[in-house]
Design a protein around this nucleic acid. Structure first.
Length: 306
DNA sequence: CTCCAGGCCGTCC
DNA sequence: GGACGGCATGGA
């Protein structure tokens, strides 16, 4: 990989095992829009990026010049995915089709607070509607970041702003029964900030401190249980947060789709989530999160099991 | 009209 | 412990 910086444009050359569209569309994040063929506007933390990829070349316009390392980290571009895929295939050749079709997905390193709130919203909802609610909350309470292809983009509200949103405000944003869950999550998020005595820090740094000081010493199971202290967070949402923002790449979230897909590929009949969890842990081990995402995206795209 | 969506909670046994 | 209905909202 080669990086060239020219004013607000960051160009990546010789990319491997990466596709921006796949990475954004696979279901791990909700704060983006496809604005043209192979072109996406996406929000990470309080930054807006507009990226266009052709083959192994990606050009990203950033609305905050000088944050190349943050973008590289967000897109997880410093990790050797060829090695991960090779090892996964060694452990289980049945992943071949999923990796062949969706192998250019990378697991993003997302902000903890936005990921938590987003996946609380996600329960019993389809992805387009999750995206709409995330955009609506951001538009109402976040900061304006910029415009792309006629659409305005806003940051997801930061923790201090979230802590001032009431249950009824969430209800007005059509979150339904999730409103009290979102409220409780914002209270817990704010309590982390208070507990760690984080004052006068920049957004990404607040995120880093929470990840390090609240979750840094916990293994994946302990982190999941800690997250489940939040109302409306169960195994699935907790594991999504673990995988997509807390760097637990061994987390294996099981939702309706992955359950169907695993049953289709491995079991040939209906089995419990616990059984699937155990099976996945044994088969994929510390690479479970990658396998899950390849399978999820592949299976959902193909409509496997339905 | 129905049924279901990247689930979870409270209640029942 | 496991099963089951309810839950807001929108789209197929």
């Amino acid at each position: 990989m080669n990086i060239i910086i020219n004013n607000e444009y960051i160009t990546f050359e010789n990319l491997s095992d990466f596709d921006l569209g796949q990475t954004l569309e696979c279901g791990q994040c909700f704060h983006f829009e496809k604005i043209d063929e192979d072109e996406y506007a996406f929000v990470a933390y309080d930054n807006l990026y507009v990226g266009k990829q052709k083959e192994d070349k990606l050009v990203v316009q950033t609305f905050r010049p000088g944050d190349v390392s943050r973008l590289v980290n967000y897109l997880d571009l410093n990790r050797d995915y060829a090695k991960i895929k090779k090892e996964l295939l060694k452990r289980d050749n049945k992943l071949k089709a999923a990796i062949h079709e969706k192998g250019e997905v990378r697991i993003l390193n997302q902000e903890f607070s936005e990921t938590l709130m987003s996946f609380i919203i996600s329960q019993n909802k389809q992805i387009p509607h999750i995206k709409k609610i995330v955009a609506d909350i951001s538009k109402k309470y976040g900061a304006y970041l910029g415009s792309a292809n006629g659409s305005d983009f806003y940051s997801f509200p930061d923790i201090k702003t979230l802590s001032k949103i009431e249950i009824n405000d969430y209800k007005e944003l059509k979150t339904g029964f999730r409103a009290p869950y979102l409220y409780d999550a914002s209270v817990k998020l704010n309590s982390y900030v208070d507990e760690l005595n984080i004052v006068n820090k920049e957004r990404a740094e607040i995120d880093n401190i929470i990840k390090r000081d609240i979750f840094g010493q916990l293994n994946v199971n302990e982190a999941r249980e800690k997250l489940k202290e939040i109302k409306g967070v169960g195994d699935k949402v907790a594991n999504c947060v673990n995988l997509f923002s807390l760097s637990y790449r061994n987390a294996f979230p099981i939702d309706v789709w992955i359950k169907r897909i695993m049953e289709d590929i491995y079991f040939k009949n209906e089995v419990s989530k616990e059984e699937i969890q155990e099976y996945a842990e044994k088969l994929y081990g510390e690479l479970g999160g990658y396998a899950q995402q390849y399978l999820f995206f592949y299976g959902r795209d193909k409509g496997l099991g339905k």
